[in-house]
Design a protein around this nucleic acid. Structure first.
Lengths: 141, 141
DNA sequence: AATGGTTTTGACAATCATTATCAATAAGCG
DNA sequence: CGCTTATTGATAATGATTGTCAAAACCATT
């Protein structure tokens, strides 16, 4: 049976509050900063559960960290500033269809896709390109 | 000055030979298996160099491992079997344009994108879904 | 072919995110 | 309230990747 604990609620609340994507480590740090004594392992578990039940979605930053964000439950992709982490949700029906088709054309089933765009947002574009949390090169366009 | 060493050639050759994407660890294991005494750190460095100079492209498996593949130097994306690692190169001009546009529309510059489709290939679809090297859920479609 | 200045290598330690362990705790049912 | 069992959390373990640094290799030059 699944039980409701204040820890899980805390993680869910912190996720809802967070702007853009956050790492499990970052979320744990945030929670601690607000006085919550929640354990790190618990944050990982709660995030994994939320992602599994569709209440959060996850992606990997180019450095390989897993990032999570509260999910509005409809499918979308993300435009992420590689300097400040600002995230914009983008809808892309065209891409959805394309992904499904291209998989089918090659005999693939159960297709999942990773479609995310990293760049510099209008605010960060002028500043020095200090490699922030979202730096290392993805597959080059 | 950049120097040519047999180690770098070995990595390049092993990459060319490999089917689909391989991890640095895997490539190192393969090289050892064929008798090469190359060091693990060297494989990492060689792969990073190859990726930096555009001779290889890299992506992250859903588990967060960095995977590399010899690059044919024109830009494309990948359709990857999450069970056996079979990789199909796919071209997607439409997606290229879409990514560029969506970034521009939101004031983003220097856009890079991560567009890869994971699924089960025709061969693996029937077999039991044993979670192979490419298992954990990406952003759900 | 020998020399010398630099780059590269490789064994190993260090780092860092994530997962496993397992006794102690707390949820929810009766 | 008491019992059963899922959950927590401190810590150890894991596993990929990167840093360190002396020794070896590369290559232009002599």
């Amino acid at each position: 049976m699944k039980r409701n604990t204040w820890q899980r609620e805390a993680v869910r609340a912190a996720l809802d509050t967070a702007e853009g994507f956050v790492s499990a480590q970052g979320l744990h740090a945030t929670l601690h900063a607000t006085g919550s004594p929640i354990g790190l392992a618990t944050v990982y578990r709660a995030l994994a559960d939320l992602a599994a039940e569709g209440a959060a979605d996850s992606l990997q930053s180019p450095e390989g960290e897993s990032l999570y964000r509260a999910c509005t439950n409809d499918h979308h992709h993300h435009l992420i500033c590689r300097n400040c982490g600002l995230t914009v949700e983008i809808e892309a029906d065209a891409v959805e269809i394309w992904a499904k088709n291209v998989a089918a054309e090659h005999g693939f089933s159960q297709a999942a896709h990773v479609v995310d765009v990293f760049g510099l947002c209008a605010t960060c574009a002028p500043v020095a390109p200090s490699p922030g949390r979202f730096a290392r090169g993805a597959s080059r366009p």
